[in-house]
């Protein structure tokens, strides 16, 4: 009991970091290409997109919610952008339409879940199927190509020799970390996720906060979709397939409790890098693409196991839950008997 707590905290704080170091060293040794600057840039780009989406995603999980529709919102935003470009609307209006699609769907998710009390898993699972299906309907499965050099900068450009997507992720992470650690909202999210009734009775905005997190999640997914579209110079309906799994695995590996209330955004940063390095490294050592999916799936189950472990450790330590009302009632009824 007395060592469980420090051990748990140490593992939560450092375990993932060491696992990441071991993973990187392993791929460094086994693959000649893994640590080349070209490949590191590829990893960083994937991590930037997943990481960007994981920021509001982690806040949702912290608050006791989840968004499974992120990959489908990314593709919907991308194809709406692509169709708008093809229709000759011009770059800026097309970007705005693309962003509006993901953000609007996110607001729809948020309204159903936060205000009407629909199940987060069911609503966003509906979004996962619905938004991708809609993308296929819009494009009939065809990929739109060729958006010009200016748009290509979004995914491929560099600023001070750092890729533009990394800049976007870095700025978003700084904002996210500020919200998470330095403003009241971080605590409010943890309170909503850990004790929703308590948060409500203290006057915390238990509907407004999750609603805006779903909006932010849709917006981040839309930006992610546009970044990938820019990288490929094409809006393909296969974009963002399995993205929700990568993002969620990164969040859970990072130590955010799936039941809400606990977690760290820095953990999520490492979790996302871990998933990015893992799937890229497996490609580099020529493992079958099917096995990559197995690996991500295993990482997800492993993260769920860690979550259970942390909860067990929490409970071992805090078993003394007395039922106060029952004691008081017994007293009162004893006295009642005396008078009767």
């Amino acid at each position: 009991m007395s060592i469980a707590r420090p051990l748990q905290e140490w593992a939560q704080r450092n375990g993932l970091f060491f696992a990441l170091v071991i993973l990187i060293v392993f791929f460094w040794i086994t693959s000649e290409r893994f640590m080349t600057s070209a490949n590191v840039a590829v990893i960083l780009q994937q991590v930037s997109v997943d990481g960007l989406i994981a920021i509001p995603g982690a806040m949702l999980v912290l608050s006791g919610y989840v968004d499974l529709s992120v990959g489908s919102l990314a593709v919907l935003s991308a194809v709406i952008f692509g169709e708008a470009m093809q229709a000759g609307l011009g770059l800026a209006p097309s970007v705005i339409l693309g962003l509006a699609a993901g953000t609007g769907w996110g607001a729809f998710n948020g309204y159903l879940i936060a205000y009407l009390g629909f199940s987060p898993i069911i609503v966003t699972l509906g979004g996962l199927a619905g938004a991708r299906g809609l993308s296929q309907l819009i494009t009939h499965g065809f990929t739109v190509f060729g958006f010009g050099p200016l748009f290509a900068e979004l995914g491929n450009g560099t600023l001070l020799s750092v890729p533009v997507p990394v800049w976007i992720y870095a700025i978003a992470f700084i904002i996210g970390a500020h919200v998470w650690y330095q403003t009241p909202y971080g605590r409010h999210m943890a309170a909503i996720g850990g004790a929703r009734e308590a948060a409500r009775s203290l006057g915390i905005k238990t509907r407004v906060i999750p609603f805006w997190l779903y909006v932010a999640s849709g917006f981040a997914s839309a930006i992610g979709g546009l970044i990938v579209t820019s990288e490929l110079d094409g809006a393909s309906v296969s974009l963002g397939l399995g993205m929700e799994l990568d993002v969620l695995t990164g969040i859970l590996l990072g130590g955010v409790a799936f039941t809400g209330g606990r977690g760290s955004l820095f953990g999520v940063l490492f979790g996302t890098i871990f998933i990015g390095a893992l799937s890229n490294g497996l490609i580099q050592i020529n493992v079958s693409p099917y096995f990559q999916q197995v690996a991500v799936g295993m990482a997800l189950v492993f993260a769920a196991g860690l979550d259970v472990l942390y909860q067990r450790l929490d409970r071992i330590r805090f078993t003394e839950e007395e039922p106060p009302a029952a004691v008081a009632t017994a007293e009162a009824s004893e006295q009642a008997e005396e008078t009767a």
Partner: peptide, 29 residues
């Protein structure tokens, strides 16, 4: 609103967030 009007409450269910620390709970909201 009630807290702003000077009304403080100790709820029967305590209304604490277990994953937050003591200070965070005292100032919650």
């Amino acid at each position: 609103d009630a807290r702003d009007a000077g009304i403080e409450t100790v709820f029967q269910a305590l209304a604490l967030a277990p994953t937050l620390n003591i200070v965070e709970n005292v100032y919650l909201g």
